[in-house]
Amino acid sequence: MALQYSVAVNNARLDAVESTIGTSAILKIRTGAPPANCAAADSGTVLSTVNLPSDWMAAASGATKSKSGTWEDTSADATGTAAHYRIYASDGTTCGEQGTVTATGGGGDLTVDNVSFAAGQAFTVTSYTKTAGNQ
């Protein structure tokens, strides 16, 4: 039998992501493929650095958890094509999560309004939702 959790347990697992990474988390959007895991060295060019809202994720409900507040950058750091992201603790170096970036509707772990970044360009994260499995 496959391992199964209740919705309440899955909500707690999802809420632990935000509490473990902490408040004042930092999102960095980068070019290229993501590293093998969060313990591996950063890769790609940093296109954008976003200081996330203090409460950057809404409380989990129904075994899903979504971004909270506005995630945007008024001036991208560099020019390139967004392909992956990392969310760091407030120190900007301790990776807590990484995933893929696509344009809205592209199916990435995090979606933005446009994956073609130009230095100085504004952009917005349009979607970021996590769903717990094993229900």
Rank of each mutant, 00 (worst) to 15 (best):
Q98I: 11
G108S: 09
W71V: 01
T100L: 06
T94E: 00
G108Y: 00
A83W: 01
T111P: 04
S90G: 07
T124H: 07
D113C: 10
T111C: 07
S90C: 10
G120R: 12
T93M: 08
A103G: 15
T100P: 03
N114M: 06
D113P: 06
Y85W: 12
G96W: 00
H84C: 03
Y88N: 02
A89K: 15
T100I: 06
D109Y: 08
T111Q: 14
T111D: 07
A83Y: 02
H84A: 02
D91A: 08
S90E: 12
N114K: 11
T81K: 13
A122Q: 12
T79I: 07
V101P: 01
T74C: 07
G80D: 02
G108T: 02
T74G: 15
D73T: 12
T79N: 11
S75G: 14
G99H: 02
C95W: 05
G105W: 00
T111G: 06
D73S: 14
D77F: 08
I87C: 03
G92Q: 09
S116P: 07
A118C: 06
T111K: 04
S90T: 15
F117M: 15
T102M: 04
T100D: 09
T93H: 07
A83G: 08
E97N: 12
A82T: 04
G106Y: 00
A83K: 08
T104V: 10
D77V: 14
G105A: 04
G108V: 01
T74S: 15
G96Q: 01
A78P: 06
D113Q: 12
T104N: 11
Y88E: 00
G80A: 11
D113V: 05
D109N: 13
D73E: 13
T102G: 07
L110D: 00
L110S: 01
G107A: 11
V112G: 02
A78Y: 07
T93R: 10
G80K: 10
Q98F: 07
A78K: 11
F117D: 02
A78Q: 13
V115L: 05
A83V: 08
D109W: 06
A119L: 13
E97D: 14
C95H: 06
H84S: 03
D113Y: 09
A122H: 12
T93Y: 04
A89L: 08
G99C: 04
A82I: 05
E72Q: 15
Q98Y: 06
A118P: 08
N114W: 09
T81D: 03
T104D: 14
V112C: 10
D113T: 08
A122M: 10
S116A: 15
Q121Y: 08
N114E: 11
D109G: 15
A89Q: 15
G120P: 12
D113N: 15
A89I: 07
H84Q: 05
A89N: 10
A82G: 05
S75D: 14
C95P: 05
A122W: 09
Q121K: 14
A83R: 05
Y88T: 03
D77K: 13
F123K: 03
A82H: 03
W71Q: 00
G80W: 02
G92T: 09
Y88C: 02
T100Q: 05
T100V: 10
G107I: 02
S75F: 11
T111S: 13
A78T: 10
A82E: 00
